[in-house]
Amino acid sequence: MITGIILASGFSRRMKKDKLLIKVDGESIIERVIKACINSKLDNVILVYRSKEVKEIGEKYNIKTIYNKDAYLGQSQALKLGMNEAIEANDYMFLVGDQPFLTSEIINILIEEYNNSHLPILVPYYNGIRGMPMLISSIFKEELLKITGDKGGRDIVEDNIFRVKKVYIKEEKLGMDIDRPEDLDLLNMNKK
């Protein structure tokens, strides 16, 4: 069972407004990510949120929502909350809430590649650049639960590099995330 955990409880400090609520083609970025997840082959989807507006979008799609009261501790806190809720998961797909062009097709390709590889970690590369979402087997659960600060499973990937399936996706835009005001210009260019 693969559980998708959407990490959506950051503070958007570089953007200076909640980037997850920015509209792309009439939908908020977080809604686009949620729809990609629920229309994919993920067995379960969990949304870890901080803002009420993000929670309401998750509830609209009947997915499990978890409030991250300790969001100031960094991305690792959201990761742990999601994992602790995903009791039956054999594998975790960690997604970020700020990838407006992520599709259910990409998620399905990553799941298929992961299942066929028999390796416990999968990382996508968009036009050669490492990105998200990443898949990690629950065999790393204890190590993942020890992560602290504003990072996800990066250290586990680097410590187990020979156990990582790399999936190369040519179209860089599919892995694009939105962090800074300048990214909005790229976002508008990439919509075409």
Rank of each mutant, 00 (worst) to 15 (best):
E105G: 04
E172T: 03
F140M: 04
I136N: 02
I129Y: 13
E158G: 00
I139E: 14
E142L: 10
L144I: 09
N160C: 06
K146I: 05
E158P: 00
D159R: 14
E158F: 10
K165D: 03
Y125A: 12
K170S: 14
L174N: 04
Y125G: 03
K166V: 06
P120K: 08
F162D: 12
N116Y: 12
R154V: 12
E113I: 09
K166Y: 14
E171P: 00
I161V: 13
F140L: 05
K146G: 02
V123M: 14
L174S: 00
S137Q: 05
R130H: 00
F162Q: 03
K173Q: 10
P133D: 11
G153S: 10
I111R: 10
R130L: 00
I121Y: 01
K170I: 11
E172L: 13
G149S: 03
I147Y: 03
E172A: 15
G152S: 14
S137N: 11
V167S: 10
E142R: 14
G175F: 08
K141F: 06
E158A: 09
L119D: 08
L174W: 01
N127R: 13
Y168L: 12
K166M: 12
Y168H: 13
T103S: 08
V123W: 06
G131S: 09
D159E: 15
K151H: 07
G149F: 10
I169D: 08
L122W: 03
P133K: 02
K170C: 08
N160K: 01
E172K: 15
V164W: 05
